[in-house]
Amino acid sequence: MRSDLSRRRFLGGALALGATATLAACGYQEDTGGSGTSQAWSYTDDRGRKLGGDRPKRIVAQVTAAAALWEFGIRPVGIFGPSKLPNGEKDPLAGPIDLGKVQSLGNVWGEFNYDRYVSLEPDLLISVMYLRDELWYVPAEQAEAVEKAAPTLGVDLAGVSMPDGIEKFRTLAKALGADVNTPRINEAKATFERAGQNFADAAKTVNGKTALLVSATKEGMWAGNAQGFPSSKQMAEAGLTFLEPKAPGDGNYWEQLSWENAGKYRSDIILLDNRHGNLQSEQLKASYPTWRQLPAVRAGNVFAWNPETPFYYEAATEQLDRLGSSLRTV
Rank of each mutant, 00 (worst) to 15 (best):
R8A: 05
F10S: 01
L11T: 01
G13A: 11
C26S: 15
Y28E: 00
Q29G: 09
E30D: 12
W41V: 05
D46H: 14
L51D: 03
R55P: 03
K57R: 15
T64P: 08
A65K: 05
A66T: 04
P76A: 08
P82R: 04
G88V: 04
G88T: 00
K90L: 11
P96R: 02
L99F: 11
Y117D: 07
V118M: 11
M129T: 13
Y130R: 09
E134V: 07
Q142I: 02
A145H: 05
D156C: 00
A158W: 02
M162Q: 15
P163W: 00
K168C: 01
E187L: 07
A211P: 03
L213Y: 04
A223R: 00
G224P: 05
N225V: 08
A238R: 15
L240P: 03
A247S: 14
P248H: 06
G249Q: 12
W259R: 11
N261C: 08
S267A: 15
R275V: 12
H276F: 15
G277N: 11
G277P: 10
N278F: 15
Q280T: 08
S281L: 10
E282R: 15
L294D: 02
L294T: 07
R298V: 06
V302Y: 06
N306D: 15
Y312K: 08
T317N: 10
D321V: 14
L323V: 10
S325W: 03
R328F: 08
V330A: 13
